[in-house]
Design a protein around this nucleic acid. Structure first.
Lengths: 173, 173
DNA sequence: ATCAGTGCAAAACATTTGCAGCATG
DNA sequence: CATGCTGCAAATGTTTTGCACTGAT
């Protein structure tokens, strides 16, 4: 296995427990477009399609996955270009509409952030089967808050990623 | 600035509080070579030079930084190749001699792990000045342990990175 | 009309891999 | 002297950038 677990484990899949293809989160999509408009952005086809993707997929998506999803079932229209994906990700991220999820495999993933912030969570990754499981923990958040204060930092973001082997893989191997 | 903070903030520097250029950690270097030998590895010039780098630099280094450091002041000898750097990193990491530090800027960093494991820590990164400050926190570790157990995971590694603005930059801006 | 938004192609980077030669045990 | 270690160069994969064009207001 590679040093950085790069390209050597299965694609993270399912298991996210919240949000599956098909159940578009209209509320978030609407919220996102509203925020974009307020920030003085025009409404373009590319970014719009991406909002649909984020609204439909609850789990963390990489740029390439977003690209594929945005272009799937849209063979009629002109495909969304790769650069547009990255540029829109930057805008959405700057506005806090999506959050970065770094699993340490060299690919940056993103997922929608709900306005009512009660979906804040982190991830556990099974290095064997690629399962990506979200979790949240009050004690963890409290500890992080305390650390930030202790060091006089204004913490804007924090990532916590646990890597290991899930019980299913553990038993199999 | 980039979505992933990529290439857009100063290089993380100093401030690590433990280990500065010049004070080679002979104990670790010796330990590392011992472990390597036990694992059935021969002793090559390239990996050897890298061990010196890790022993001398206490803070997190990227592959490129390691390369530069390993080749600095060694203009007489043949330079250490890039692939050797990555290959050695993989071996050292597999043996648990170095740990990965992912700051989310697209570059993977590594730092030496002391045998007596009392140097386990995480990092706070100032997105403005690039300062990288290590910290450790018992409550945080406890929370992570509890989460792992709750989800039936055997957690082998965990990253916690806080991103924000340090008090110095906060006051300046 | 104006200017943000977009697609394409090329560039910039980090990392990985193939391979032939060198060095260690 | 066999096999592990190494450097080089080329390949891979992700993200960024330049530029001309399109579409929204």
């Amino acid at each position: 296995m590679g040093i950085a677990g790069r390209h050597d484990h299965a694609e993270p899949h399912g298991h996210t427990g919240h949000g599956h293809a098909g159940q578009h989160d209209h509320k978030w999509a609407q919220y996102a477009r509203e925020q974009l408009r307020r920030a003085g952005h025009n409404r373009g086809a590319s970014r719009d399609a991406m909002i649909e993707v984020f609204a439909g997929e609850g789990c963390a998506c990489s740029a390439r996955e977003i690209e594929e999803l945005a272009n799937r079932e849209r063979l009629d229209r002109k495909p969304v270009g790769r650069s547009s994906i990255y540029r829109a990700i930057e805008e959405l991220h700057d506005l806090g509409l999506i959050t970065r999820v770094d699993l340490g495999d060299g690919v940056t993933r993103y997922e929608a952030v709900r306005p009512d912030d009660d979906h804040h969570h982190h991830h556990i990754l099974c290095e064997q089967c690629g399962a990506l499981i979200p979790f949240d923990d009050a004690e963890l958040e409290r500890a992080i808050g305390a650390i930030a204060g202790r060091h006089g930092f204004v913490v804007k973001e924090h990532d916590v990623t646990l890597r290991g082997v899930c019980w299913q893989c553990e038993r199999t191997s």
